[in-house]
């Protein structure tokens, strides 16, 4: 009985300490030291409208934009309120049907295209992967250049500024941030209407 009382008191006291005080103090510190990062690195237009987060993938399907990876988050994909992978197993027919359709579309949209880089036709674990590989960006350069009426090398120069190498030179993999790249293109070389 004494142990039951101790257990109850211990639950209450430690819940207040570790379940409330600790996260609230961390929230306070984070908001003061890293206000932008603690709030999700939102990208806003001049009028304050939120148009996305630099960490969260958005869908792009217009030919003048670099396309992001397919997404299984939410019913329509790219739902940052319902993150998810496809969870298709390696012998799932639905996986092959989806990849086949995507490969055919990508090869039709990017004439002269060769093998498609794997990340461009696979869904990410989160469904919100903000990046594509440099290979997937290069794959799309001719199409984007044609749509925007500029040379491929001009597009490549912009892609290069949004390509991040490995962190500290060796951690992770090289990536291209799709949303930031597309916003930069819209600013520097807007699409012809």
């Amino acid at each position: 009985m004494k142990n039951l009382i101790t257990a109850t008191l211990m639950t209450i006291v430690t819940t207040i300490l570790f379940g409330l005080l600790y996260p609230l103090v961390i929230t306070g510190l984070a908001q003061v030291i890293f206000p932008d990062k603690a709030n999700g690195q939102l990208i806003k237009r001049a009028d304050g409208t939120v148009i996305g987060s630099r960490l969260i993938e958005q869908p792009f399907s217009s030919p003048g934009y670099f396309h992001s990876r397919p997404s299984a988050a939410g019913a329509a994909g790219y739902d940052a309120g319902a993150s998810s992978g496809s969870n298709y197993g390696p012998t799932n027919q639905k996986l092959f049907d989806r990849v086949k359709a995507d490969v055919e579309k990508l090869q039709a949209d990017n004439p002269g295209a060769r093998l498609v880089p794997v990340d461009l036709v696979t869904t990410s674990g989160s469904g919100l992967d903000p990046h594509v590989s440099p290979a997937s960006a290069e794959f799309q350069v001719p199409r984007v250049a044609r749509e925007r009426g500029v040379s491929e090398d001009e597009i490549r120069r912009v892609v290069a500024t949004h390509t991040e190498g490995r962190q500290f030179g060796f951690l992770g993999e090289p990536v291209v941030n799709v949303l930031e790249l597309n916003l930069d293109l819209d600013e520097k070389m807007p699409m012809r209407k």
């Binding site: 990849v99 060769r114 990340d119 696979t122 989160s126 594509v132 290979a135 993999e173």
Partner: peptide, 21 residues
């Protein structure tokens, strides 16, 4: 028709369910 080979510009491999970074 999918390129899964590792190179300087992509990690390659089975990327279904994995993040590029």
């Amino acid at each position: 028709g999918v390129d899964q080979s590792a190179s300087a510009v992509q990690s390659g491999g089975n990327m279904e369910g994995k993040e590029v970074r």
